[in-house]
Amino acid sequence: MRTRESTLWTWHLVAGAVILVLLGIHMFIMHLADFFGTVQGDVLEFSSVMERSLDATFAVMYVVLLAAALYHGLYGLRNIIFELSISERAERVISVLLVLAGVALFLVGAYGTLAVHSAQAGV
């Protein structure tokens, strides 16, 4: 069974909307919050980074953003490659490789975000 191309593309747009909100919040905190005086101190200080990592809301936001951005970015890359008029076989190989890359990167990123939780819990 093949997923229809229009379905994949619709998810690309949906992911874009999700990223807009979550990456907007992320960029605000990392680069603008200081300017507006809502956050004080260095946001890249280890303690500051850990404070956000251990906050359940942030952790969930990070993992959702990770998934959405990987899907959106890798699907976009797939679109660009497919426009080069490659064979159907090459298209299938590239799709599989991109899915594998996406899953691997998701696992790395999710581990990076969530491992500190189990470390805190002493697991």
């Binding site: 951005a69 890798l74 976009g76 790395v108 990076g112």
Partner: peptide, 26 residues
């Protein structure tokens, strides 16, 4: 889009340094 994707993939690895502790992060 491509530039952000490249940055994002590096970003995943760089920010995961937090799991190695404060010294590695610094």
């Amino acid at each position: 889009g491509l530039a952000i994707l490249a940055y994002f993939i590096l970003h995943i690895f760089v920010t995961s340094a937090r799991v190695l502790g404060e010294e590695a992060w610094n």
